[in-house]
């Protein structure tokens, strides 16, 4: 049987509903719609579907617009993929790095790639500064 509830109401549900809850809520609504369609007809089923979609719009079921989506590169989903380097997929921000380090599977590699690079850069700058200051002191006071 083809389930064909009002599209705008279905789209509205998809827009506001939390993605983790959407599948089973939508399934329940479709099942009820299907039952009402057979028993009471299209008009009644449509009206009830729209009413229920509007009544479902509750704070506890809403999508959180501030929730960060877990960005797992496609290559990681393939078996035997090599550990990720953040630079390959996108330019990381500090928030990205902090978010990715929490991952149990590849958090350590992220720390190595991101923080390791930063530490090397920092060490190089300090070393360069030391050489410059030492050279300045050597020229100024020794000769």
């Amino acid at each position: 049987m083809i389930v064909d509830p009002p599209k705008w109401a279905d789209g509205f549900l998809r827009w506001y509903c939390h993605p983790e809850l959407l599948e089973d809520i939508q399934g329940d609504l479709y099942e009820l719609y299907c039952y009402r369609l057979q028993r009471y007809g299209r008009r009644y089923a449509d009206v009830k579907f729209v009413w229920e979609v509007l009544m479902l719009c509750r704070f506890s079921l809403l999508k959180n617009p501030f929730e960060r989506k877990k960005q797992v590169p496609l290559a990681l989903e393939q078996e035997g993929a090599s550990p990720p380097s953040l630079n390959v997929w996108h330019m990381p921000t500090w928030n990205d790095i902090l978010f990715e380090t929490r991952n149990k599977d590849y958090g350590a590699y992220v720390i190595r790639n991101a923080y390791g690079g930063n530490m090397l850069l920092g060490f190089s700058v300090v070393l360069l500064l030391w050489i410059v200051i030492f050279a300045w002191w050597w020229i100024k006071f020794k000769h």
Partner: peptide, 25 residues
């Protein structure tokens, strides 16, 4: 959702049917 967050219930996804438009229970 509230009962699940309180730890009184746990859920798992089941099979999909045609009358549910291919959505799982």
């Amino acid at each position: 959702k509230r009962l699940e967050s309180k730890g009184y219930l746990k859920s798992k996804m089941g099979g999909a049917t045609a009358e549910r438009g291919g959505r799982r229970k």
